[in-house]
Simulated assay, not measured.
Amino acid sequence: MTSQTTTAAASGTWTLGDRTVNRIGFGAMRLTQHGEAFAADAEPRDRDQAISVLRRALDLGVNHIDTAAFYFSRLRSANELISRALAPYPEDLVITTKVGPGRDVSGEWLPHATPEQLRGQVEENLRQLGRDHLDVVNLRIVGTDSIAERFGALADLRAAGLIRHLGLSNVRLHHLAEARAIAPVVCVQNMYGIGASAEQKEFLDVCGEQGIAFVPFYSIAGTGRTAGATTDHSREVHAIARTYGVSTAQIRLAWTLHQGRHVLPIPGTGDLDHLSQNIAVGTLRLSQDDLAVLDSLHHEAA
């Protein structure tokens, strides 16, 4: 693969509401520090490097960036880096953010926002990003409780013009049905990659049937989650990577892209070389035999 010349357009496109985006996007979580995300003692990433990565992402055709006000570390805020690097924003750029969780100034996690507190979280994202509206806001939750009140509060902010489109993050199938009864849902952002459960696969398929974008996180990190790319690769993944002359991380991302045209991965990095490698996956076409091998690993782990 020629990562130096490949752009995100090679991955194809999908829609987020009325916005068309290239399928490979960019996750901003790792922009703020080295090492594990949200670790209190992590070293802040060099500001100029983070800004260079963001600008290079757009040069390579990325027009979908995922962020959140709670993506910050000592000295760095993902939203403010995005604003510094990219404002005034290109018209085709879609910035998706998340609300629900919160962190205090010391970095400690706070209880999930009440419906009344969600407006403050939306306004904080607006302030940090320097915008008068947010393209997409995902309600991120933990647990299985009803989301009707919280999603309804965001629907009110959408009606008021502060939000253009709504999505969900870290949810179950019944949450999607509950939300869609209140307002349109343009995307679901859930963990997904090789080894995902049968329930996760069902959710991905349901989103495809309903024309909803499925935005997987930890597609590369896998079991590493916030710590970064996993080293827990099977012999089969290593063998397929050698066949194509790419990294195991690229194979994991390519497999995820092959799960449906509505799948929009958001791999994140603070490294320019890794960014180019992620974008280059858009040209990687896995054979049916290789997909069958990787699918078997997926089903075995489910």
Rank of each mutant, 00 (worst) to 15 (best):
254 A>W: 02
241 A>R: 00
242 R>Y: 04
225 R>L: 15
206 V>L: 15
264 L>P: 11
191 M>C: 09
238 H>Y: 05
240 I>S: 06
248 T>C: 15
241 A>V: 03
169 S>I: 03
141 I>Y: 01
257 L>D: 08
209 E>D: 13
215 V>W: 04
137 V>G: 02
149 E>C: 05
136 V>K: 01
248 T>N: 12
236 E>A: 15
230 T>W: 09
261 R>H: 11
233 H>Y: 12
196 A>F: 10
202 E>M: 10
235 R>S: 08
136 V>G: 02
245 G>W: 03
208 G>W: 04
240 I>F: 05
253 L>W: 03
273 D>W: 08
165 H>P: 10
211 G>Y: 09
249 A>S: 14
135 D>I: 08
166 L>C: 10
169 S>P: 09
176 L>R: 01
146 S>R: 03
199 E>Y: 03
217 F>D: 10
209 E>C: 11
230 T>N: 11
241 A>P: 02
159 A>N: 01
151 F>W: 03
169 S>R: 04
211 G>C: 13
167 G>A: 07
230 T>H: 08
220 I>V: 14
133 H>D: 04
246 V>K: 06
213 A>G: 13
146 S>L: 08
273 D>H: 07
231 T>V: 11
137 V>S: 05
189 Q>D: 14
264 L>Q: 10
257 L>F: 11
219 S>C: 14
261 R>G: 14
186 V>K: 02
263 V>E: 06
189 Q>E: 15
229 A>S: 12
155 A>D: 01
143 G>N: 08
257 L>P: 09
266 I>V: 14
207 C>I: 02
248 T>Y: 03
253 L>V: 02
272 L>K: 07
134 L>P: 03
216 P>D: 09
268 G>W: 07
191 M>F: 06
172 R>W: 12
255 W>F: 15
171 V>A: 04
199 E>N: 08
160 A>N: 03
186 V>P: 04
165 H>T: 12
128 Q>W: 03
208 G>P: 09
134 L>I: 06
253 L>S: 04
141 I>L: 12
176 L>F: 09
171 V>M: 12
201 K>E: 15
168 L>G: 06
173 L>T: 11
127 R>G: 11
158 R>C: 02
233 H>W: 07
159 A>K: 00
256 T>M: 12
201 K>S: 15
206 V>G: 06
136 V>N: 06
267 P>L: 10
145 D>V: 01
248 T>A: 15
159 A>Y: 00
229 A>G: 07
185 V>A: 11
156 D>H: 01
247 S>M: 10
250 Q>H: 06
215 V>A: 12
181 A>Q: 13
182 I>S: 01
251 I>Y: 06
242 R>N: 12
241 A>G: 07
198 A>Y: 04
160 A>H: 00
133 H>L: 00
218 Y>N: 07
264 L>R: 07
132 D>L: 08
170 N>G: 12
210 Q>Y: 09
234 S>V: 04
264 L>A: 15
